[in-house]
């Protein structure tokens, strides 16, 4: 991992499984040591407002739910190009969903140098619940562990370099 400060953003809403991005941030924050070289943000349907966060980061991991008929809670890491080609125009506030926002940021040269998308599949965003379904809850734990390990490994690597 490079020494550039990492920005991790969880995007979501309070609605059922759609809150998974927030849960990842909350659980990761609880596990990480204070010296971790990263900033964590949970954002509520930021629309184009996401760009102000992306613009100030060199490296960003973006966590979001992916609506799918697939098994819920499954981890996917879609490529940026693939996501930006998708049609999510109806999914965000005032017409700016994640794909539109990333497309706009790219047009303006405001994307981080490195951006990774970390997604979990969900079947629906239950507007009457603020709880994750068991399958997505398990998926969140798996994703948190995956991200945590990378961060810890990165810290160990940085320590070794500084000692060498």
């Amino acid at each position: 991992m490079s020494s550039a400060r990492l920005l991790i953003i969880g995007v979501g809403s309070p609605a059922g499984d759609d809150r998974l991005g927030w849960e990842v941030i909350a659980r990761l924050k609880a596990k990480l040591p204070d010296e971790a070289n990263c900033d964590l943000w949970a954002l509520d349907r930021p629309g184009a407002g996401l760009i102000e966060y992306l613009d100030r980061a060199e490296v960003c991991w973006l966590v979001d739910a992916l609506l799918s008929k697939d098994t819920p809670g499954r981890y996917l890491q879609p490529g940026l190009e693939l996501l930006m080609q998708s049609d999510d125009r109806a999914s965000g506030s005032h017409g700016f969903g994640l794909a539109d926002t990333l497309r706009l940021a790219e047009r303006l040269g405001m994307l981080p140098q490195r951006i990774e998308l970390h997604c979990l599949t969900i079947n629906s965003a239950d507007t009457l619940s603020e709880q994750l379904s068991p399958a997505v809850d398990a998926g969140v734990n798996g994703l948190v562990e995956r991200l945590y390990q990378r961060l810890i490994d990165g810290m160990d690597h940085a320590d070794a370099n500084s000692q060498g």
């Binding site: 184009a48 017409g95 539109d100 497309r103 706009l104 047009r107 303006l108 040269g109 405001m110």
Partner: peptide, 14 residues
Amino acid sequence: SAIGMAAKHPEAVQ
């Protein structure tokens, strides 16, 4: 859309 507009008028969108 603003995305299309951004190519020609980036300063306005920014």
